[in-house]
Structure formats: structure tokens, C-alpha cells
Design a protein around this nucleic acid. Structure first.
Lengths: 362, 362
DNA sequence: TTGTAGGCGTTATCAC
DNA sequence: GTGATAACGCCTACAA
């Protein structure tokens, strides 16, 4: 005997089927049968087993189940530090996972590495986060682009193991075979363009999201394309640098101090719109009287800004739900072979930050 | 033979030490030794094994390890839907867990049950959330009061299994043997009282947090006690109902329309302070000129309010860190037997929502 | 209807 | 440095 039999190795150990069997006076195998619900047992044994299980507060061990079946019933979620939008997405993910008996393991880029200069530090960190997920044998992952797209080489850690990947608001290159869920950015850009034009604006500005993001590119392109089809309009675009929205302060100030300043600005996100508000205030530019503003996302603070922000509402909660539904479905192979790319509908919410162009200017 | 040997049961199966051994031309046992870092191997074998492991992208299976050792290296986190404060706490938890090779499994009360009328629906939901954690054999849990305190009978699901419990911003009854981490609420209340008195305010109002919350009770008591020791001051308190802060609108309006309206109000949270701003605006009451306001928490929006809010800053990130440190430490029994109750220091952040009482009123 | 025993996948360890 | 084996909790084929 290589090692001494040691059934009590872990003092605070969980109750096992063996323990139930001992209490009920039957074998562990019988316990297994009863708990599995096979009706092959006498009613009397059944009751004895069931009540023993209850008395001991038995709970099945999913770690074991995961080991045996290769399905851990856990989904890895790689998210950014939360803002309002992403917390809605997480909510959708959590709800859907819960309903399907899955559980999320959420990892963030670590705080410590946040102000890191060497990209190396970042990468190491992200790789180790990925490994923490892999080591737990998650059944799939949901990724958020800024955490994933910049480091797509690391994503291969998942794809090479044929782990289902679903990205949110970002489409990975084909070879990763990853599904994606997002909002209909293209429609959003178009809605904004139409709205501003109907109000009479012709000289229009766009503060675009970072070009490294899918949403930044898509919103910009659809907005510019839509404007291009409307005769008489012109659009000037400045791109916000990647990172915190306030980093776009310079671009915004530049746009607002242009000799021929736009009468309306489409900010690619509500966060950016908030910065536009601030810069406008500092320059004595009145929102609505001198300048109309549109955002994108409908964050919680959008309605509380003064004046309340006109914006494009995304259904973040549903985006989360779909993402979770898709990872789960991929796990059971019930989907086709080709990656899915879903774009959920968006909606223009008109509030008070946009107004008709005053005649004097027109 | 009961069942056919089936080494290829799961097609997309992960690579094992056995596979590494085959590739490197050594036994699995050798692989185990090398990977464990025991220096009992020849450098040459070591390298062969290591490179084979790398080539196959080997990753240890923590599910198996968890099953064998009884330690899953996972911590359950039961949190509310995120607001700014709680997201900071989560950040601290995540960082600390990551540094110690733990992983969080986060569960929320389900969205679907949110508007539930029958408390029964709620309880069932919470119990099933707890079981999802238990079934994964988490090594401990971090709980947030509103999810836990109202249902302390369910918490026994954890405590009866001697699972380490750490609560945040709430102290559970002794019999649960739960640790807790929070902020020094009492000091916070005192700081606010002193601040307002130094500014000359004597007729002071308090919008208290719900009495079911620890923070609501502690902030109120310390604030009222501190004021009681300062001669000439009087304090009137209205309690906010549990739930969304805007539910306190009636109480706030009532206070602001009192014949002898307070000249300063301490709102038990920044969220409540925001509601006070709104009600004051609707009543034409000027903040600072007619009324000083203090909040509690220093949420992200506090500095952006107009005027910027004077508030008590809590170090939510550190609260999260400590909570995680403590669950982990409990798991390794390195702590004493008595529950720990830590209150982290707070700090008064004076901004522009508080001002000296004008002489005319004084 | 129930018990026995072998196997699931992975790792660690003991005797050689 | 290796082969054999225990161990985790659970499932199941087969014998009783």
C-alpha cells in the first residue's frame, strides 16, 4: 500500500455519497442510484437515502462531474473595469448563465498593471489571467475587445484548444472561429446623421472612438457615409485616443475652436459626450443654443446631464444574454459550423441636447 | 472488465502528464516530478519534459487538484448589481485573489426575480445561488449584506459547512463565526458633524440610510451622538426607505419644506445626496447659499455634481482587498479562532457643497 | 432491489 | 528514473 488509507484527510470535508450510505445503511452505489432518480429502488430505501442526504445537507460535487464529463459548467469572462454599460452586459451574462446552471469566472486586467508602461507587463498579466481560466477548464469564454483584440495572439490560447469564444462588441479575425455579439452600430450612426440633418444642421463634427475599436470604426464609417449621401452637409472628424475619454479633451477643444465651428457634434460615446459638455462649458459655448450634441450608449448619467443628452440606446443587457446563450450553445454543438455575428437593434433617444439650427446661423 | 478502457472519451480532451511523457519519452511519474520542480532529475530529462509540456501547451487540471486536496482555489462572491462603490470593492477582491491564484465566482440576485412580490421567489433564488457556489466547492465566500443579512438563515448553508465567510459592510450575528470588513462609519459620522459645526451650522438635518443596513445605523448614530455633544445644535433625522435612493424623495422634500428648514444636511450616501440636489433644485433652494450638503462614499459622480459634493471617502478598493485576504487566510487556518471585524479609515473630502452659515441666518 | 468492484482523469508517491 | 498504485467522488456493469 503506497499511502495509508486516509478517508478523513480533509477535516471540514464535504459529505459524500459514501457518508449518506453509511447513515442510511446502504451502499454508496445505491445512494448514487437513488439520487440520480432512477426508479429502480424500493420506496423505503429511497426515503431512507433521501432523508439521510437531507440531514447531512448533501450537495453533489461538480468538480468531480466536470472531471468525468469534461464539462465544468463554468464560463470564463474577461472584462474591463466596470462602467455602466459593461455592468449591464455582465448582468445579462449572469442571468443567462444562472438559468442554465453555469457559473461565470470573471477576470480583469489587474489593477497593479494598470499604469504600466512596458506593454510587456500587460501581456504577461493577460496571459496569466487566461491561464487561470484554462486551468479551471472553463467550457468557454466571453471576451471584451480591449482586453482581447490588442492581444489576439493570446486568444489563440483558447482557440487552439477549440474552446468556444464569444466576443462582445468586436469581431475577431476569421481564423479564431469566434462568435460575436454587439449592437447595430451602423444603424446607430445612420440614425444620428438623419436626426441632425432633419434639424437643419449641415456643418457637423464627429468625435470618433479609437480606431482600434470596432465600435469606433463602425460608428464613424456609418455616420460619415450617411452624411455623404445628404447633399450640402460636411463632416469633420477627430479621433479620440485610446484610453480614458478625458484624453480626448485636446481634440474636442480643437474642434470647438475651429474658425468654422460645427453646429452639431456626434460624440462616439456618452462618455465622450460628457467631455464635450465640459469643454463647451469652459469655452462659454451654450449647448443647444450654439451647439447640438449626440452621444452613443445611453449610460445612466445621460439623462442627468444638463441638458439631458440625446443618444443612441444599446440594449446592453440583451447583448450579455445573447453572448452567454451563444457560448453555451457552442458547447453543446447545437450551432452550425460558421461563426455567428449578431448585431442587436439600437434606438435613438431624443432628449434636449439637440435642437433645430437657429435661422440666424442657417 | 466492467467497461471498456476509454482513454479518448472526450475528443477535444486536454493534454495530460501522460501525453507529455509519451512525447518526451519518459514516464508520467517523471513528468510529475519535473513539473513539481523537485530537483531530482537530470538536467537533460528536465529540458525534454519541459519543452514537451510547452509544445503541447500543457496546463494542470485544477478540477482534479481540487477534488484531491479539497481546495478548489475558488471563492464565491455574492454581490448586488454594481454601482460605483461596489465595483471598486470587486476590483480589490479580484486583484487580491489573482495574486494568490484564486478565482472568484460571482453570483447576483437574478434580474428576473428583481420585481418579485412574493418574498418566496427571492428566497428560492438566493438559496439556489448559494447552492451553485457550494456545488463548485468554493473555498470561502464574500458576502454583501443586502444579499445576506435579510436571509441569514440561508447563510447557515455556508457556516454549517464551516466555510470561511467574510461580509462586507455588515456584521453577522456571532454564531455564524463570520469575519467582516468595512469602513470606519462611526468616524465618518463624527467627521461630518464636526465639519458642519465648524462652519457654524446649528440646525442640521440627516437623511439616514435604511435602518436594516449596518451603515445606515452606524452613520446615523455616530452623527447624532457627535452633534449631541455640541451644545446649541439640533438634529432632525428622516430615514430613507430601503431600495432605490430616489424612493427617499418624499422624505427629502418633507425636510426641505419644514417651517424651520435645516441649514445643512448630511445625506447618508452620495446617491442620497444626489437626490437632495434634485429636490433642492425643484424647490428653488440654492445649494451652499441656502443649504450645505454632505454625502458619504465619494462616488465617481460626487466631484462632478454642481457644486462638487463634500463627502466622506471610503477606500472601497482596500475593503475588497482585505476581504479577499481574510477569506484566503481563513482557508489556511492562519488566523486566530475569533472572527475579525476590520474598519478601514475614512477621510473627509471638502469640496464646494458646504459653506459657512451666512451671518444673516446665524 | 441491492452490493461489489472497476473505472473515469489526473496527480503524487512509494518501492524498486 | 520507472512502474505501480492510492486517492478524490461518483457512475455503472454485473453479480448476488
Amino acid at each position: 500500500m503506497a499511502r495509508r488509507l486516509n478517508r478523513e484527510a480533509h477535516p471540514g470535508r464535504q459529505v459524500s455519497q459514501r457518508a449518506i450510505g453509511e447513515l442510511a445503511g446502504v451502499s454508496q452505489a445505491t445512494v448514487s442510484l437513488v439520487l440520480a432518480g432512477r426508479k429502480v429502488n424500493s420506496e423505503e430505501t429511497r426515503q431512507r437515502v433521501l432523508s439521510a442526504a437531507k440531514q447531512l445537507r448533501y450537495r453533489p460535487n461538480l468538480l468531480v462531474h466536470g472531471m468525468q464529463t469534461g464539462k465544468s459548467k463554468m464560463i470564463g469572462v474577461m472584462a474591463p473595469p466596470y462602467d455602466y454599460y459593461w455592468s449591464r452586459i455582465l448582468y445579462g451574462i449572469h442571468d443567462t448563465l444562472a438559468q442554465n446552471d453555469y457559473v461565470p469566472i470573471t477576470v480583469w486586467p489587474s489593477h497593479n498593471g494598470r499604469d504600466v508602461e512596458a506593454s510587456n507587463g500587460y501581456e504577461t498579466d493577460e496571459l496569466s489571467q487566461i491561464h487561470r481560466l484554462l486551468d479551471r477548464r472553463v467550457d468557454g469564454v466571453i471576451l471584451w475587445p480591449p482586453t482581447a483584440s490588442l492581444f489576439s495572439d493570446h486568444v489563440s490560447e483558447f482557440s487552439s484548444r477549440e474552446l468556444p469564444i464569444v466576443t462582445v462588441d468586436h469581431i475577431l479575425p476569421k481564423n479564431f472561429q469566434a462568435d460575436s455579439v454587439g449592437s447595430d452600430e451602423a444603424d446607430g450612426g445612420k440614425l444620428v446623421a438623419d436626426h441632425l440633418c432633419k434639424l437643419g444642421h449641415r456643418n457637423i463634427g464627429h468625435i470618433a472612438g479609437p480606431n482600434v475599436t470596432s465600435w469606433g470604426r463602425l460608428r464613424r464609417q456609418s455616420f460619415e457615409d450617411a452624411l455623404a449621401e445628404i447633399p450640402g452637409t460636411s463632416c469633420i472628424t477627430y479621433e479620440a485616443p485610446a484610453g480614458h475619454p478625458t484624453l480626448a479633451t485636446d481634440q474636442i477643444r480643437a474642434m470647438l475652436t475651429l474658425p468654422n465651428r460645427p453646429t452639431a457634434i456626434f460624440a462616439a460615446s456618452d462618455l465622450l459626450a460628457k467631455v464635450v459638455y465640459r469643454v463647451a462649458a469652459s469655452l462659454g459655448i451654450s449647448i443647444t443654443k450654439d451647439l447640438s450634441i449626440v452621444g452613443f450608449s445611453d449610460d445612466d448619467f445621460a439623462a442627468e446631464l444638463v441638458p439631458p443628452l440625446t443618444t443612441v440606446r444599446q440594449d446592453a443587457y440583451r447583448v450579455g444574454r445573447r453572448a452567454a446563450e451563444i457560448v453555451i450553445a457552442r458547447g453543446s454543438e447545437s450551432l452550425g459550423k460558421r461563426p455567428l455575428h449578431e448585431a442587436l437593434p439600437v434606438e435613438l433617444v431624443v432628449r434636449s441636447s439637440t435642437a433645430a439650427l437657429p435661422r440666424s446661423v442657417a
